[in-house]
Simulated assay, not measured.
Amino acid sequence: MKKETENEVVAHTEENCKKLLLPVQDALDVLNGRWKLPILIAISFTPKRFSQISKEVNGITDRVLSKELKEMEQNKLITRTVYDAFPPVVAYAVTEHGRTLHKIYGQLGEWGDAHRRLIMGK
């Protein structure tokens, strides 16, 4: 009987783990990669054109930026607005849903600072 109780505890723990992991995995799937958070931060205060984002996010290629912007638009993190001008002007802005990440990347930044100090012994 004792083994059954232990198995129940293990099963319960695994179930709780899965419940915690699924939403985290969903978030990581949407925010995966090196560039999405830097792009969000670059446009978090004001809408920007492609070339402005490219200049602010150091090291990103135009091809990768284009791909990331499309994925972020599909996930409703940003909007893409085409203005009637010649040549056409396109601006990218963070959606209300995307703004909900503001606290998260603020906390990631704080954690990153603390981690850097820990690793570097400062």
Rank of each mutant, 00 (worst) to 15 (best):
K2H: 05
E4W: 02
E4M: 05
N7P: 00
N7H: 01
E8R: 03
V10S: 00
V10E: 00
V10C: 01
V10N: 01
V10R: 01
V10P: 00
A11M: 03
H12E: 03
H12Y: 01
T13R: 02
E14F: 04
E14S: 03
C17M: 12
K19Q: 12
K19C: 01
L20A: 12
L21Q: 05
L21Y: 02
L21P: 00
L21V: 02
L22Y: 06
L22H: 05
P23V: 07
Q25M: 09
Q25Y: 01
A27D: 04
A27L: 13
A27E: 06
L28T: 10
D29S: 10
D29A: 11
V30G: 01
V30Q: 03
L31A: 03
N32M: 06
N32L: 01
G33F: 01
G33W: 00
R34N: 11
W35M: 09
L37T: 13
L37P: 01
L37G: 04
P38F: 02
I39C: 04
I39W: 01
I39R: 04
I39G: 04
L40R: 05
I41H: 11
A42F: 06
I43W: 03
I43C: 02
T46A: 10
T46E: 08
T46W: 00
P47K: 12
K48F: 03
R49C: 08
R49E: 13
R49T: 08
S51D: 07
S54Y: 04
S54T: 04
K55E: 09
K55W: 02
N58Y: 04
G59D: 09
G59P: 06
T61Y: 09
T61L: 08
T61G: 15
T61S: 15
T61W: 07
R63L: 11
L65V: 14
S66K: 14
E68C: 15
L69A: 08
K70A: 13
E71G: 10
E71T: 09
M72Q: 06
M72A: 07
M72F: 07
Q74I: 14
Q74V: 14
L77A: 10
I78A: 11
I78T: 10
T81V: 15
V82N: 12
V82S: 14
V82L: 14
Y83I: 15
D84W: 15
A85L: 12
F86Y: 12
P88R: 15
V89L: 15
V90N: 06
A91V: 15
A93L: 11
A93R: 13
T95N: 12
T95F: 11
H97A: 13
H97V: 10
R99C: 06
R99V: 00
R99D: 07
T100G: 07
T100W: 03
T100D: 07
L101M: 10
H102W: 02
H102P: 00
H102L: 11
Y105M: 04
Y105R: 04
Q107D: 13
Q107W: 01
E110Q: 11
W111A: 14
G112I: 01
D113R: 13
A114M: 03
A114Y: 00
H115F: 07
H115G: 00
R117P: 00
G121C: 02
K122Y: 10
K122I: 07
